[in-house]
Amino acid sequence: MDVRLSPEQVTLRDAARQMVDRLCPQTVAELDDTERAGKLEAAVVASGWLELRTATDDGSPWATGVEVAVVAEELGRGLADTAFLGPTLAADLRRLAGAPPGSTAETIALGADLSEPAVALGGTLGPGAVALDAYEATSALVLLREGDEYAIGTIAVDGGTTSVDLTRPVASCSPGATVSPIEGLHHPLGPDDLARWRGLGLAVTCADLVGVMRGAVTIACDYARSRRQYGAAIGSFQAVQHLLADAYVATEGSASIALHAAWAVDALDGRDALVAASAAKAYCARAARSVCETAIQVHGGIGNTWECLAHVFLRRALLSSEVLGGVGANLARVLAAHGIGGGDGLR
């Protein structure tokens, strides 16, 4: 066992960090800077990071869950307003199904509460499905149920966008939309495939949450050092220091369990990867909400204004938390893995 990042992974992290520091929004106003956002998107596409989970000749992905998590954490830390999660999950779903790669603008569709992938029955999509990362995306992958297994198909993403997250739009999909089967599909997705895919989705959102927590702790500490009351920086008061210390500790615990989930995606069988990711997601989702709330609290009145970045971190955390299930759904998975209250088993 040696869970230090490899030299290549450190290089990848540093590259992502530099890109984030150069092109991500530094203020709420910069979220409206479309030129900057366009440069960020172009840089992410050019780096090849949207294709980390496309298949090599033997069907394995170009990069492991750890590399994906390394990039996702930096994008979360920088509040990157560009697609990553959706195209990454779409690429992995195509890989697992043995389908040819899609466009890097392709994303995935989830059910209305984001906790499950969108499933089409009889070739049409039911109501309420939404597409993640709907910036420029024109199509999203959905599952097509075939008995106990699933095929995949695409739907057009044409609905209006709305999202709790100011950095990542979510688009509604038209109910009754026709699903186009993917040509060249090699095999249906079985339970192990879907468990591994869910494990990847949870691990990537955990990494995003870890990044969000790091970013939120950073702005809160910066503010605590500069804001003065009673003639002293508020960061010198124990009441404030202890809030920030707890936020930092929760972030470190999250980073440890999220790293394990990212490793498990490709190192364990699908079920065990999902179990590892479920524990991580429950931990990270709870921690992230608390850490972002602390960031708002430390900013005082300013923290409750639209212009303060603290709520942008919180909003991003709320979206990442819900994708493929938040605290409750994942605690249930953890119990099911230990044979308690599983119902229809682990999924």
């Binding site: 440890s256 369990i257 394990h260 429950a282 119990l335 308690i340 209250g341």
Partner: peptide, 26 residues
Amino acid sequence: RRDLAWALVEAEMLRCHVSRRLSDRL
């Protein structure tokens, strides 16, 4: 059951965290 689930998750976190710390010590 919820309290038990949190105990399971917390214990798993610590296992991962100690692995990370002891690896850093390499």
